[in-house]
């Protein structure tokens, strides 16, 4: 009995160790060694600010996908961007600076309310209850999920509406992924015009719930000489590349054509690149798109 036990257990240890060591040789997976190097260069916070699932995912993407820019890491800042650019052979500077943008003008009284919400103070929570307290399913709920999610403290809630400080925004897209209503969008900082509504409802339905929403009349689509505006699911989509390429010669005919004043020119303060040094207190007017302008 003793001999059998010793032999069996010894054999078991021997067999499993041999199988595993042989398997680890035969089944070793070759990975691009550069992935590890790039991952090392990244801060390793796995914050997701780059829009990828963790630092390793971004490192893989930036190496394999030529369209992924080297400066997506918000946590690392310009130093990391430079290092990643060196490692991948991509130019750090040839990336369009972007900024987060809120496609909603819901202000007090403009959107009808279905009920008063008194549950957990999160947008996701409110959304669970009949699509949120606002009659418009695409309005900013204003309970600040994006504010809490923003890794750069670039957002705040005022009058039940989220506001964005462009100077602090790094266009990481965390807020876009957080918003349950999908009203946030990343746009180029150079963008000239933007639509302030994200409703996918038809005109009548929008009129019923909001005084300001886009009624999908399509006037802007017809007027745009650059063919940069189109309708998708009764929602205006602006091709900023085409718009910027056409230049200012159209004199923003789309803005003039809009019967609901929902397409507007963006204020230069908003679209200008972020200043190098951050002002101690951001002046009231310059950090938000002025809705009444």
């Amino acid at each position: 009995m003793i001999a059998e036990s010793v032999i069996t257990l010894f054999g078991l240890g021997f067999v499993s160790a041999s199988v595993l060591s042989v398997a680890s040789r035969l089944l070793a997976v070759e990975e691009d060694p550069r992935i590890e190097v790039v991952t090392e260069a990244l801060p390793g916070a796995n914050c997701g600010g780059c829009g990828f699932a963790g630092c390793e995912a971004y490192a893989t993407a930036v190496l394999k996908d030529p369209s992924v820019p080297p400066n997506r890491c918000c946590a690392g800042g310009p130093d990391v961007a430079k290092r990643v650019a060196e490692l991948t052979g991509k130019a750090a500077g040839d990336v369009e600076p972007m900024v987060a943008f809120r496609r909603c003008v819901k202000v007090e009284g403009k959107v009808a309310r279905k009920y008063d919400y008194a549950g957990a103070t999160t947008c996701a929570g409110a959304k669970l209850l009949d699509g949120g307290p606002d009659a418009c399913r695409y309005a900013c709920i204003g309970l600040g999920d994006c504010v809490r999610a923003c890794p750069f403290d670039a957002m705040w809630i005022e009058d039940g509406l989220v506001h964005i400080a462009p100077a602090k925004c790094t266009s990481c897209g965390t807020c876009v992924r957080t918003c349950p209503n999908g009203i946030l969008e990343i746009i180029p900082r150079r963008a000239r015009v933007m639509v302030f509504c994200s409703s996918k409802d038809k005109g009548k339905a929008v009129k019923d719930v909001c005084e300001a929403g886009c009624i999908s009349c399509g006037a802007c689509v017809k007027k745009c000489p650059a063919k940069a505006i189109r309708m998708e699911d009764d929602r205006i989509v602006i091709d900023h590349k085409a718009c910027l390429a056409y230049g200012p010669s159209c004199e923003e005919v789309c803005v003039k054509s809009c019967p609901r004043d929902i397409l507007r020119c963006l204020k230069p303060e908003y679209i200008a690149p972020a200043p190098e040094t951050e002002p101690a207190h951001f002046p009231e007017e310059s950090h938000v798109v002025d809705l009444n302008a």
Binding site: E4, S5, T8, L9, L12, G13, S16, V19, L20, A23, S24, L26, L27, A28, V29
Partner: peptide, 26 residues
């Protein structure tokens, strides 16, 4: 060897899991 059940089972399971992991990866 019934009395060695615990140790034999757990070693087999541990080795098996590790092997399956390597196998699937490759």
């Amino acid at each position: 060897l019934g009395y060695l059940q615990t140790i034999i089972f757990i070693l087999v399971i541990a080795a098996l899991v590790q092997f399956v992991e390597m196998f699937l990866k490759k």
